[in-house]
């Protein structure tokens, strides 16, 4: 229960950061995707039904705040969670470098999902043009931040789990 509350608060915080403070970073149009990092963390370290719904809701919140149509990011984040969850059943990922790599590849999955859906449902002209550069930069920013975010989340998770353990 406490853990779910922690993740709920982290979710809110991440959306708030992404709509306000992260725009102050001198990265031009690139906004580091902490929401993606959180979804990847859940897929790797906390694969529960609540985490699936959390990923969907985080994507949905990005749609509410940014996307012209609902469902785009909800789809992308759900897909990212699914891909990370499936890969985590095959590979044991625990080092910061590997988690960065997973976040990097997850960012590409998200980018591909957004392009695919944009092309199929909305026939957005020219979405392919120059998009690789954006995906790469966004994936790089997320991958750089991933070890720090993962360490903080692991710390929070272990603290709560320690409290929960019987004496």
């Amino acid at each position: 229960m406490k853990l779910s509350l922690l993740f709920l608060l982290v979710g809110f915080l991440v959306v708030l950061l992404q709509t306000t403070f992260l725009h102050l970073l001198p990265l031009g149009p690139i906004v580091p995707d902490l929401i993606l990092v959180l979804c990847v963390y859940w897929g790797l370290n906390h694969p529960t039904v609540g985490a699936v719904l959390g990923s969907f809701l985080l994507g949905y919140s990005v749609d509410v705040f940014s996307s012209p149509v609902l469902g785009l990011n909800a789809f992308a984040m759900s897909l990212v969670f699914l891909a990370v969850y499936l890969s985590s059943r095959c590979i044991w990922i625990h080092s910061p470098l590997l988690s960065s790599a997973v976040v990097f590849f997850a960012s590409w999955i998200k980018g591909a999902a957004l392009i695919l859906v944009g092309t199929l449902f909305f026939a957005v002209e020219g979405l392919w043009i120059g998009v690789l550069k954006y995906i790469f930069l966004e994936a790089l920013a997320a991958a750089i931040l991933a070890p720090v975010v993962f360490a903080l989340l692991r710390r929070g998770q272990s603290l709560l789990e320690e409290v929960r353990m019987p004496l």
Binding site: P47, T48, V49, A51, V52, L53, S55, F56, G59, Y60, V69, L70, G71, L72, A74, F75, S78, L79, F81, L82, Y85, L86, V117, F121, F122
Partner: peptide, 25 residues
């Protein structure tokens, strides 16, 4: 349950997308 819920979420988001794209949402 995690796998099934994930599939349901992916399908549900596609449903939302499709409804939004057709202006039915």
């Amino acid at each position: 349950q995690v796998l099934l819920t994930s599939f349901v979420c992916v399908l549900f988001s596609l449903y939302i997308l499709s409804a939004a794209a057709r202006g039915h949402l």
